[in-house]
Design a binder for these strands. Sequence first.
DNA 1: CCTAACTGGGTAAGCGCTTTCCCTCAGTGT
DNA 2: ACACTGAGGGAAAGCGCTTACCCAGTTAGG
Lengths: 342, 342
Amino acid sequence: MAQAGAAVTLSDVAREAGVSVATASRALNGSERTVRPDLAERVAAAAKLLDYSANAQAQAMAKGATTVVGLIVHDIADPYFSAIASGVSRAADDAGLLVMLSATLGRPEQEVRYLRALRAQRGRAAIIVGSRRTERDRALDAEIAAFEQAGGRVVAISQARLPVDTLVIENRAGATALARELTALGYSRFGVLAGPADLITAQDRHRGFTQGVVAAGHPAPTAVHGDFTRDGGYRAMTELLDSAGELDCVFAVNDVMAMGAIAACRDRGIRLPDDLALAGFDDIATLRDISPSLTTVRLPLTELGEQAMSLVAEAPAGSPRRRRVKGSVVVRDSTPPRHSQR
Amino acid sequence: MAQAGAAVTLSDVAREAGVSVATASRALNGSERTVRPDLAERVAAAAKLLDYSANAQAQAMAKGATTVVGLIVHDIADPYFSAIASGVSRAADDAGLLVMLSATLGRPEQEVRYLRALRAQRGRAAIIVGSRRTERDRALDAEIAAFEQAGGRVVAISQARLPVDTLVIENRAGATALARELTALGYSRFGVLAGPADLITAQDRHRGFTQGVVAAGHPAPTAVHGDFTRDGGYRAMTELLDSAGELDCVFAVNDVMAMGAIAACRDRGIRLPDDLALAGFDDIATLRDISPSLTTVRLPLTELGEQAMSLVAEAPAGSPRRRRVKGSVVVRDSTPPRHSQR
DNA sequence: CCTAACTGGGTAAGCGCTTTCCCTCAGTGT
DNA sequence: ACACTGAGGGAAAGCGCTTACCCAGTTAGG
């Protein structure tokens, strides 16, 4: 065995097999050219003997193409993102690609940093997941351009704010549909845990919901903003409970916030769904089983990840493609039909 | 602008700045040697002008070291793993490293495949997370050796089965402690959702729990095996409910299975915790807030990820290091004190 | 039989960096 | 003045692959 750090190289294998490196390369890593069977066999044997593993960096350099795909999410511990990541991972696996994970923790400048790092890696593509902010991010636009200039593909999951192929989630329509269901169930005084004011996903869901409620002839919901997290939901719910008047149903703009809302209710002694109904958005797995099970708008998260990967595989179109993704309302126990107590 | 695919190279920058590539390299990417300030500035300006980004592959090849760390988990959508991944990600970020994610979906041969891919990438390290199986995996041992031979570090999180630095989770002790608490609360007839029979983590937790129960003078729990997943928990719980006699408390060997158990109870009309108490293991975030909140054994998942990264950074010891990680029992509402109804 | 067309091995030129090594030039000490 | 040193620029040798390109040996067609 060679000493540590001295990896086996192709020329080691070639020498062992008694052929040139060209032949070894052709035999092991495939090419147009065929290699005489007996030689191919000898090379394979040598490679196996030495436990050779081709240096992917060198290969990438020589052929000018890597097998790395970057995945940029806000927070991998958040079930929303981890479900998407799971889909990406599976699809990448099928395509023989490797996934480079980065979590921005909500800091937009990190997106730029990671994309830059990915460009340095000459990544084949980048998948950017997560809501855009209202304010346009010039630095990100520039880095995206540079990344594509270098031959990489970029795909986004969220809003059509970036000049790249995008899986656009129909937040607004989904929230409106939810509002419609909820009003049909008999609810009329709504509260909204609205998420961060500058996060487009949060805005869209909030607006869509409001629109649906108003369309049904009810007053616009009382909204409280807060982080797009469990703690944000907790705080927003607490504030809503303190400030708002009588409410019969609360809509958390995502399930993770609903999670926090549930905790806040528990701490306040408010029983769900008897004292108050609650609905979320996303349909993250863990909230399907709790009791009361959460009414929400289901998004096909894992498939979203897979679809993003398939967009990566397709040839780039002249202009950015937009693929709309619908959510479907799932009514569960947290919003039972309300028999108006008049 | 150059045409697509033609990335800017160091020699482009050097030409633009009117210096040699050597100087450009020294100015941009640092080295022992210093560069005269005015030249350095000119190079920096040229780099900025051309939006140069060093080819990491080429750098890696030239200096023989990459900045990639591999993370191998069973399933990134599982909150247990995503929490750990979150810690790894954060720590990698601080260390200026990139994380390559792979999900084995429980197939041991995938671990080997990924580790091999990581070796091809000349990854600096690999972090393998997740329970080992009883059967020894020679292929994995061999690939680990090869990986280290090539200069990479390997760290595991789970059991001390692999010949590498490991964060060993005290599953057994944790489960015993949990049993002790539970018996102290007055429970005596236990069931266990035991996970896969050949998964060591599951075994250890099951055994530890049994030991604790028996030590308290109660009969050994009835066990039902099942996948280490939500669905596995659901099925195991259903089976347990059908087959076992009167039970007052069920221990799911991980929280995700407990999730399924909760669903099974709901579908059977069994109220938690009134009709039955339930406890889990891991303390995944989403289960802290539901009601009844789940009694479990808390594991510092995120920190586990961070610690693994710090082990990666440390110089390798002569023989594998083992760092024991304790869980702490957290009693919540799913196991209220039981006032024995005799 | 002779030559054209293949087949398939080897040589060597990169891919984009880092890093020796060499060399010039300015600043020192005497 | 003069050898001596250190600072710092540049040429060039790799790092480990792939892939033209060249060329010898076969086979096939006439």
